[in-house]
């Protein structure tokens, strides 16, 4: 079974920092980082009127479907996707084969600038996720739930 994704304080702040900076540098509206299984990891920019949970799940569905299509035509993956809307556009990039970087932008910036900034951010994120993977795999990084009791679980469903 694939290993679970564990996020620690230090890496979480570094990831949020990269997403914040990308939002500013690319002049984007919103930047999201989503696990390939549909879990939202980080969000930066004007996120207040966006349903981030739904966005994360649909991003994962879309990337999974496009990955399936890629394999059908003999490609391994489509690492970049661009969807152009009337006002807002969306760019998705696979990072380290594990997470998806989503940038939403409008005509205050350009596709060229967005792509350029994404490239830099992707390199930084890849390093952070490699460090995370190493940390999770290190001995002693047991499940934080090893301590919970059956009673704890029962309490969750007691009402």
């Amino acid at each position: 079974m694939a290993s679970q994704l564990v996020m620690y304080e230090e890496e979480f702040h570094r990831i949020n920092g990269v997403c914040d900076r990308l939002t500013k540098d690319a002049n984007a509206k919103v930047v999201f980082l989503v696990d390939k299984n549909g879990q939202l990891i980080s969000a930066a920019g004007q996120t207040h009127n966006i349903d981030t949970t739904s966005l994360a799940s649909l991003t994962a569905g879309n990337v999974a479907a496009m990955g399936g299509l890629a394999k059908l035509i003999g490609e391994n993956e489509f690492p970049n996707q661009f969807h152009e809307g009337a006002k807002d556009s969306l760019y998705m990039t696979l990072v380290g084969g594990r997470v998806v970087l989503v940038v939403i932008f409008d005509n205050r910036t350009s596709l060229g600038l967005v792509r350029l900034r994404i490239k830099k951010a992707t390199e930084e994120l890849e390093k952070i996720f490699a460090a995370l993977a190493a940390r999770s795999a290190a001995p002693g990084a047991g499940s934080p739930f090893a301590e919970i009791s059956d009673a704890d679980i029962d309490n969750l469903f007691s009402e």
Binding site: Q4, L5, V6, E9, F12, N37, G38, I41
Partner: peptide, 15 residues
Amino acid sequence: MSFINYSSREINCKI
């Protein structure tokens, strides 16, 4: 594959 976030103290599971 669950996602455990120590920073936001969340655990996410998929059913």
